[in-house]
């Protein structure tokens, strides 16, 4: 029934050679990586190839790894083949200095808001996105809150001094 992870890996390696790498089996789900310039090509191939047919974008999100030089930001795609009921996870990494990744909105309409959310949280610049602006936060916000260097709490709070917590 389900497509085996080995088969997907074999097909991808046939097509892209060593451009796709870091194949892993995480709790039964195939996970791999590609250079960020290739993300659309890989998605398109997974979409079009009849024996793969990953035509449902389950999820798209960003991750920030401040410890990895030149690989600080990741965009993670969760794809699903609904017919064969197989899922996979696909990642691209990008340096935080040039966070440009091609948009998947041409392929999946659902990517629109998820990419806007990723831009809002992490500042990933999706090249070619029709309407790339903040979605959840206010437009005036001047930082990307989910990056690890930014604090969770509101820094303008004045009522939460140490004295109130017995530390003053």
């Amino acid at each position: 029934m389900a497509i085996s992870n080995e088969y997907i890996q074999q097909k991808l390696t046939e097509k892209f050679g060593d451009q796709v790498f870091n194949f892993e089996d995480t709790y039964g789900m195939l996970c791999f990586e590609a250079p960020k310039d290739l993300n659309l090509k890989v998605l398109q191939y997974l979409y079009d190839e009849p024996s793969l047919g990953f035509q449902f974008l389950t999820d798209l999100c960003g991750v920030n790894f401040p410890e990895n030089p030149n690989r600080e930001l990741a965009v993670v795609y969760h794809l699903h083949n609904l017919v064969e009921n197989t899922r996979l996870r696909f990642k691209v990494f990008t340096p935080v200095a040039t966070p440009d990744v091609f948009t998947a909105t041409q392929l999946f309409s659902s990517a629109n808001w998820m990419e806007r959310e990723t831009y809002d949280f992490f500042g990933v610049n999706f090249v070619g996105h029709p309407n790339l602006k903040r979605i959840l936060n206010v437009d005036e916000m001047d930082y990307f809150p989910l990056r690890k260097e930014y604090p969770l709490e509101d820094q303008t709070r004045i009522d939460k001094d140490d004295e109130m917590f017995g530390r003053g």
Partner: peptide, 8 residues
Amino acid sequence: FDTYSVLQ
């Protein structure tokens, strides 16, 4: 929700 986006 003591976070950056919520009015306290």
